[in-house]
Design a protein around this nucleic acid. Structure first.
Lengths: 118, 118
DNA sequence: CGTTATACCTCGTGTCACATAGTATGTCCC
DNA sequence: GGGACATACTATGTGACACGAGGTATAACG
């Protein structure tokens, strides 16, 4: 499912941090992963992801390192979650949960995954 | 709980439409309601809400009408959800649910209201 | 009559999503 | 070996939006 971009604002960085929690990944891989793992909902183009990564790196939440891909030998920039990033992720996840709960209270979403009946 | 504004992007308009689904409300009332009903999570200042309302009105999703307050006699601009707005709300709620589900899949939030353990 | 609450409006700044475009290199197949 | 395709990162410009700060006006209250 494809959703309007405006709705996704704020979700992108949190999703990226969460994926990096499992282990380091490179940009192109993140673009593919986000699209596949969320059935397109969290999909974002390269021109959205890369600036997002630069932003997270500038804030010290992730750290990039150029290395060669073990399979192909191509240069890639792997991003890893920093200690600061882990704290931010925990904080953001908490806030996201609060937001979901609030939206649930006013009836926009339900907690069991079913859309509220209008 | 006060959350970072960036995370809330996209949630604001949906929350407003949802509140108006119950019946018409005026700006100041919406500011207060959003803050109270969500324990501050969905709180937004007037400088955020009013432009948001003008935007929704320009899109034909809500319709405003100046009337006098029955209790005080003061002039207020009451906003009501239009037919178009109802459809948009249904669509947005569906998309919001998809987003919540996607964030749940990657582990950022849980569906039962508890924060995922990092 | 001054303070507070109500109620609406505006401007400027900073941030962000995204489309578009560009660069470069590795793989595959003929 | 060369053209097509996938991989992978970078740059730029536009438009939208959240929000702080500031402004106006009126009713209620002591």
């Amino acid at each position: 499912m494809r959703i309007e971009r405006e709705l996704m604002r704020g979700a992108g960085p949190v999703a990226v941090l969460k994926l990096l929690e499992r282990g380091e990944m490179y940009g192109y891989e993140l673009v593919e992963s986000l699209s596949q793992q969320s059935d397109g909902v969290l999909a974002m183009g390269q021109s959205t992801l890369y600036p997002l990564l630069y932003n997270l790196e500038a804030k010290g939440l992730i750290a990039g390192s150029w290395r060669e891909a073990p399979e192909t030998g191509r240069a890639r920039k792997y991003y890893a979650l920093t200690g600061k990033g882990k704290k931010r992720l925990a904080s953001d996840a908490k806030q996201w949960q609060a937001l979901v709960n609030a939206m649930s209270v006013i009836g926009v979403v339900s907690r069991d995954g079913k859309r509220s009946v209008a």
